[in-house]
């Protein structure tokens, strides 16, 4: 029996590859200078979804992401790896969302998708590291949640069985479906792109992207509807607008400080035998080592 799985994914700046031009002169982050990537743990979540698809024929995997137009990139990336479809939730009304407003918007979109047995997401995104959106989506939808998932053993007979990886050990948990499960980076990495799927989906686009295309491609989707990446604005979902964006965000950023290190008196040691030995002698003499 096939499952309907929604994978929540986020396009994030690659904070692990921060270059010198990553900060603007005014101390704010220059997002344009950072490469945008598929949030790593969301890829782990996608892999778990694809494994369920391998195991239960007829399973449908849908990616859901909220972000600017260019976030359609990660939906394509997901299609290349085996997802069946995707939804991009994009609107200025979502700008300035904290985790709670984000979760609310996502939960409204999930309600619109309607048919789902399982919602998977990465444990956290590397730009914020909060790990809040998964549990908050679960709460907004009134679903049970299992966080820190590492391996889904089965999802059948109305319940899911999986392994959790915690700080000090592991748990095997059973939970009725539908449920929200977040996946750790300790889970297996996502499979690579599949060449056939890349050929099939390379022209998959949102409406907005297609409008900016040359005419050759405009009619492409008439006989290939799978090339449509759904693009939803705030008007496409049913929501209380007060709970979206800045107004729906209880947390506000009061201040952002560029990181400034306070210099302390450092002693510089040459990497030669003599100076290193002098340093070691000193450390032994003051009982730091030895």
């Amino acid at each position: 029996m096939g499952l309907n799985i929604i994978v929540l994914a986020k396009q994030v700046p690659d904070t692990r590859n921060v270059g010198k031009d990553a900060m603007k002169a005014d101390g704010t982050v220059n997002r344009a200078a950072l490469p945008a990537i598929f949030n790593p743990e969301d890829l782990n979540a996608l892999e778990q979804a694809l494994r369920l698809k391998d195991k239960y024929p007829g399973t449908k995997v849908t990616l859901l992401t909220m972000g600017p137009g260019r976030a359609a990139d990660i939906i394509r990336e997901g299609l290349f790896r085996g997802a069946d479809g995707g939804v991009l939730l994009t609107d200025r009304a979502f700008a300035g969302s904290d985790t709670l407003a984000t979760s609310y918007a996502l939960s409204c979109a999930i309600r619109k998708i309607k048919d789902y047995d399982l919602i998977l997401a990465g444990r956290q995104a590397i730009d914020g590291d909060t790990a809040q959106v998964g549990p908050q989506v679960a709460e907004k939808l009134g679903l049970p949640q299992v966080t820190y998932g590492e391996e889904i053993y089965s999802a059948e007979k109305g319940k899911i069985s999986l392994k959790r990886r915690l700080e000090r050990g592991v748990e095997t948990v059973e939970c009725p479906m539908p449920a929200v499960v977040t996946i750790n980076s300790s889970a297996p990495p996502c499979r690579p792109r599949n060449a056939k799927l890349v050929m099939k989906f390379k022209h998959a686009q949102t409406v907005t992207e297609r409008q900016n295309q040359s005419e050759d491609y405009i009619d492409l989707t008439n006989d290939r509807p799978y090339l449509n990446i759904a693009e939803w604005s705030v008007d496409d979902i049913e929501s209380d607008k007060e709970k979206l964006g800045l107004s729906g965000s209880p947390t506000k950023v009061k201040q952002i400080e560029n990181v400034v290190f306070q210099a302390k008196e450092s002693r510089h040691i040459q990497a030669n035998d003599e100076e290193i030995e002098e340093l070691v002698k000193e450390l032994i003499a003051n009982h730091t080592i030895g």
């Binding site: 302390k264 040691i269 990497a271």
Partner: peptide
Amino acid sequence: KIADFVITGDVMETIPKLIKAYKKNT
């Protein structure tokens, strides 16, 4: 900037020197 001692050099060469100096002096 927050270090008390700064050794500018190759880690792979510096650490064996530290180990050697430590063994010699203890």
